[in-house]
Amino acid sequence: MVYTMEQNHHTSIRAIRETWGGGCDGFLAFSTKDDPRIPAISLVHDGPEEYNNMWQKVRSIWRFVGKHYLDEFDFFFQGGEDLYVLPQNLRQYLASAVDDPTKDDFFGGRRFQQSQNIFFNSGGAGYALSQATLRKFTDTGLDHPKCFADKHTAMEDVMIARCLKDVFDIGLVDTRDAQDRERFHPFSPGSHYSWDYPIPPARDWYESYNRLWPIKLKEQCCAPDSVSFHYMKKPAMVRHLHSLLYFCD
């Protein structure tokens, strides 16, 4: 599932549908206007359609998917329109994540530590819920007093992580490979390859959010079976990366 807006149907969403989107077992865009050709669905949610109200939009998405598609898929993966996903890598990773996704909880993506007590999976890099976890979240969590049902905020990834942890004791999963290389990425491939630790006294939020999982540099930044990359802002970048991955001999 990706969230978007009508004006991006013919740009970002079209690029996704023409590249990685077709590799998913199911695909839906949640937008500001219905469009069966994508397919895109417009959902009503509390508050305005804006970045600072992303949590309410995401709550509506999860509620819709939980109502209409819960029993059709083992796992559900959500992110924004500026994602590039490798569905076969995601499928391969999730295949061994839990024994039975209809019974076992799973909440996985790119782990961040915002503060001493707040951990979450980056919404930008996308995160996955098992069927069992989504059932708990939609049946009980969405309207639970501890799950911020009335809050208007951009930090949807923090909100769902706190909800799952505080209400169901479902924590984060270390999704790195055997060599501690990350699979879910909050930046584009080039940004991860070129990133380096700041020179003190300079500080970097990315470094501070990853203190428990030291960031690997250059070729070690990304696992060979990486799942997702964020900030793919231009449709041409999505198509270019797709061509490099699948059509270069």
Rank of each mutant, 00 (worst) to 15 (best):
P87Q: 06
A154G: 13
Y3A: 09
Q113S: 13
Y246Q: 09
S96F: 01
R110L: 14
K103C: 06
L129I: 01
P235F: 08
P36Q: 01
M5P: 01
W195A: 02
S208H: 00
I199D: 10
T19H: 07
V85H: 03
I170H: 07
Q7N: 09
F184W: 12
R203D: 11
E18Y: 04
D174E: 12
P214V: 01
L217R: 12
K67S: 12
S122W: 02
G22Y: 01
M232D: 00
M159S: 14
L244V: 10
A97P: 02
I13G: 01
V167L: 09
F247E: 01
E50D: 09
D150M: 09
N52L: 11
I13F: 06
L83D: 00
F229G: 00
H68L: 11
D174F: 11
T140Y: 07
E182W: 09
T32S: 15
V158I: 15
A132R: 09
M5G: 06
H240G: 05
G171H: 10
A223T: 13
D46R: 15
P224I: 08
V58E: 14
V65H: 06
V167F: 08
Q92C: 04
H10L: 10
F247S: 05
C163G: 12
K136L: 02
L129V: 00
G79D: 04
V173D: 02
I199E: 09
F27R: 07
T4N: 11
P200C: 08
A154E: 07
L129W: 03
A161S: 15
K151G: 06
L244Y: 11
H9N: 07
R17D: 07
S12F: 02
A132Q: 08
F137W: 12
K233Q: 04
F73P: 04
S194I: 03
D100V: 06
D35N: 14
R111M: 01
V2H: 08
M54L: 14
Y127W: 12
T102P: 02
Q78F: 14
E156L: 12
D166W: 15
A161P: 00
R211I: 02
P87F: 06
G66F: 00
K216T: 03
D74K: 07
R162S: 02
K233S: 04
Q78M: 14
V173C: 04
D100H: 11
Y3W: 11
V238Y: 00
F112P: 03
Q88P: 01
Q179C: 10
P87K: 06
W213K: 11
S243E: 15
D174K: 11
F137E: 02
E182L: 12
I16K: 03
I16H: 02
W62N: 00
F137V: 08
L70K: 08
F148I: 06
K146F: 14
L83H: 01
Q92W: 02
N8V: 03
S188A: 13
A223H: 13
F30G: 00
S130L: 03
Y206P: 00
V58M: 14
R111K: 00
H152R: 14
G108K: 09
T19R: 11
Y231C: 07
L83M: 09
G47Y: 04
R135N: 09
S115A: 13
F229C: 02
T19N: 08
G123T: 03
D99K: 15
G126Y: 06
V65M: 13
W195C: 02
I61E: 02
D196K: 15
A40K: 06
L172C: 06
K67C: 05
A95Q: 13
A161Q: 00
R183F: 01
G108W: 08
I170F: 10
K165R: 14
D225W: 04
